[in-house]
């Protein structure tokens, strides 16, 4: 509805609200690739990322958000990945990060 305008809007909450997020896709992704859960947030993937050094792309942040049920623009973000494989080379937990990028794209194309 359009009501009175006072020259400002009402900000929407920025918080990740786990209760209102639909975690089904996130759970599916973790079921297919449980190793993603072992990420310790070291940032090696993002540090070595070809795309991340030249664009806003942050692989670690995007997949962490996906795990919290925040899917918006994850697909577009993952499209920035060049699939060069460097991140997988450096991951200390041995996560198939390249596979994660592909999986997120496969699962979250609709978001």
């Amino acid at each position: 509805m359009s009501g009175l305008r006072f020259g400002y809007g009402i900000n929407r909450p920025r918080a990740i609200d786990i209760d209102s997020n639909d975690l089904r896709k996130s759970n599916e992704i973790l079921r297919e690739m449980p190793e993603l859960q072992t990420c310790i947030g070291c940032g090696s993937c993002t540090a070595s990322c070809t795309a991340g050094n030249l664009t806003e792309f942050n692989f670690r942040r995007v997949h962490t958000l996906v795990r919290r049920g925040e899917y918006r623009s994850a697909y577009e973000e993952m499209n920035k990945c060049m699939l060069c494989g460097k991140c997988r080379l450096v991951c200390p937990r041995g996560i198939n990060t390249r596979g994660v990028a592909m999986l997120i794209k496969r699962k979250l194309g609709d978001f």
Partner: peptide, 8 residues
């Protein structure tokens, strides 16, 4: 300009 998060 800041009232949007004040009222929120």
């Amino acid at each position: 300009a800041n009232r949007g998060y004040s009222i929120a």
